[in-house]
Design a protein around this nucleic acid. Sequence first.
DNA 1: TAGGCCATCTGGTCCT
DNA 2: AGGACCAGATGGCCTA
Length: 367
Amino acid sequence: MLLSLADPESPSFDHNNHSLDSFDRYASDMEAMSVSTDDQSASDAQENNNVMAQQDRCMSKLMAPLDSGAPPKKKRIRKTRAKAKSPELIQKLKTSRRQRANDRERNRMHGLNEALEVLRTTLPNSSDAKMTKIETLRYACNYISALAASVKLLEQSKDKHDFSELPNPDDYAFMFNFQYSNDSQQELSPSPLSRTGTSPGDVTFNSGPLDNSPPYAAQSQISNGYGCMDSPKDNFLEHSGYHLLSNHHQLDQHQENLKTFSQCSFFLDHQNMNQGDSKLHINSSGSLYENSFTFPSKMSLTYATPPTSPGLMKNNVHSYSGHPRSMLPPTTSTPPHSSYIVHQTEPRFGLGPVSTYSPSQLQMSFL
DNA sequence: TAGGCCATCTGGTCCT
DNA sequence: AGGACCAGATGGCCTA
């Protein structure tokens, strides 16, 4: 076995002959011990760890003082200059260290992936399609937010001793789902219920359902230009059991100025738009819906009932862009979609493609 | 074939 | 000094 040649613990090891030659043999033996990186199974990884541990023992033995095994004698402190190492030796040391670092990094990433897989299986998902890593993380955030909203609603109902208005979870899940392109500035949307404030990354709900009304099922989606309902990227949203299009029939019972939505969905599309603008697709058959909340970013948009002209849009709305029929979800029960161009009130984080702005700077207002 | 996703390698930085 | 962590680079695989 290879180890017997190089292992200081092996009988064949000559502790007195601790020369550079023997070290070279160590280095080459350790390299030979390194495990192929292709297709490592768990057992391979374990074996690899053992080999690495063995390597480390070899190295520490080699580096340890020669009298390490001797009885505790008073040692004479001798000032010695470190032996100059040959370039070959330095190279071998580097290679060995690098190899071990690679192994550790590989194992670390495997551990990360295993944890991600656990998270994946924890989340409700009716699809066979495996969620990507980023989808899993964002989905988990949304799911936690929805659960938090559920808890809050339950507590409110308990306080009022009235559970009659407790809707089906499918009807009230409030989910923020951000989907971004390759955006280095992007942030995961924080839980809408757990944070307040206006600084980047914070979420403030100024008024409306999240604070004082039953949960409602607005779906906001900053999309990268995917279709509405039929996009694979959207499908995984529904796997949580929450609707992309949801009922708001009880909204007006809880806030006087709130009217009802029968169905609505919000769809933000900032692809192919000028920088600073974003396109909002609104699908609603409801009448006036009044609410205001601060999304993690500072994008302001105002929405009334589906306007017949751009003039009905207030504040930051710059233009009205018609009816992108191609973006419509495949349903006949909803009115025609409208899309509006709204203005982003805060500068994007950095320059670059239109899609690169931070969601922590988005503010949405529905009036 | 381009783009997305992923695993791996690598060098740098921080921490113990 | 060595390990953990991170981000960039790279190449393979898959899919539209």
